[in-house]
Design a protein around this nucleic acid. Structure first.
Lengths: 215, 215
DNA sequence: CGTTTTTTTGAGTACCCTCAACAACGGTGG
DNA sequence: CCACCGTTGTTGAGGGTACTCAAAAAAACG
């Protein structure tokens, strides 16, 4: 919860964010249908959110890294809409929504910050619609790599070399393609000298080239 | 802006929602990049939101009918992220965000309602991710028809017979498939006696059958 | 009624999926 | 330390779904 808050407001938020929770790799922070009580700010680690379709097949709707906030889409329903599962051992701040609202009552800035969070989450999903709606498999994988690269840079790491936190299966599900296709596209990018990869280890050789991928 | 507000709060919201705007078919309520000032509640009519990809191809991200609220995803950026275009002659209530926030300051309920709106919009986009990520063309079209049917019922019309407000091109773009495929799927559903269709006029014969469409 | 746009239909093709087998990795226990 | 095994990831061959291209039919418009 950074950005634009007065020290006083920050203190108020910190006060209710006092409790944290550790989530081991592969375990759930919350499950679809659980009653909504808190939103969670990721302090360390990363998560995926999974929506289970009626036929039982799960779809990875998003990935979240430290700094991001989970559970915002539950406000409307009163219950979480998807499972949130840790990709690695992670720690989250628990922000009880009731208390957050009480504090926000006195401070327009806190409320506005919450809305900004929700709004940018909406925007992210809108962008994902474009990826899933009009991009080829190659473009989807390229976009995914570029996003990863950007996130790494934002978090202070190299944007050219990093280790993916998620499996091929999770990547494929998120991009709406099959795991074999992810594999093939990575190989193709390797042959085109756009990247080098070794399992989950990725080195980007040509950022611009990736952005120009056609199919 | 219905639901759960006290008469006093409702009066406050109504006060700032005094001005309306008429948007003719095919014209824009707002454009991507416009500075964010207001959100808009649809009083009558319907809209599509369009996100233009870097290569110039537009993607229809969503359809909105009366009762829905437009522009919520602009709060984060400070500018609208997509074009909102009227599918028919429409009227919207203008809700200046600054004033809405000022009023909301005194009323937690108004703030919470705004958040519920944003949250359910997020949820809708999440559902769309599932449609685009793991459904066949047939399932996408079936899902689209069922959604239309549901919206019609909510608005008090027949859920079995209605006229689509959008073109095949817009449907196809929204579903991430090609216009010819939409056409073919509708014909297929007709041959299977799930629907009857005549241009934009749709009659659903077998709701359960549509829900069971596999490919 | 002619013109333009939208929708439908058909034939051929490309991309991605399916199925299957193999290789690489990581943990466990002998 | 290495053999063993389950999991995860890679590679290949073949097939199916949806796309592309093209043209006709239908609808919308002035």
């Amino acid at each position: 919860m950074p950005a634009g808050l007065t020290p006083d407001e920050l203190a108020q938020v910190s006060a209710i964010a006092s409790s944290t929770r550790t989530v081991r790799q592969g375990t759930r922070l919350y499950a679809a249908g659980d009653p909504f009580q808190s939103i969670y700010a990721i302090r360390t680690g990363s998560f995926k959110t999974v929506l289970v379709h009626r036929d039982g097949q799960p779809q990875v709707t998003n990935f979240y890294f430290s700094g991001y906030t989970l559970g915002l889409d539950a406000i409307g329903d009163g219950s979480y809409r998807c499972d949130a599962i840790a990709l690695e051992d992670s720690v989250v701040c628990i922000l009880p929504f009731r208390e957050l609202n009480a504090v926000g009552q006195g401070s327009g800035e806190i409320q506005r910050h919450l809305m900004r969070l929700m709004s940018s989450e909406m925007a992210r999903r809108g962008d994902m619609q474009v990826v899933l709606g009009m991009m080829s498999a190659g473009q989807r994988v390229a976009t995914f790599l570029l996003n990863q690269s950007k996130w790494m840079r934002v978090r202070g790491y190299s944007n050219a070399e990093f280790v993916l936190r998620m499996s091929r299966t999770e990547i494929a599900s998120h991009l709406g393609i099959k795991i074999e296709t992810v594999s093939r596209m990575l190989r193709k990018f390797g042959e085109a000298h756009l990247i080098e990869h070794h399992g989950r280890h990725i080195r980007i050789l040509d950022l611009d080239g990736l952005a120009r991928v056609e199919s």
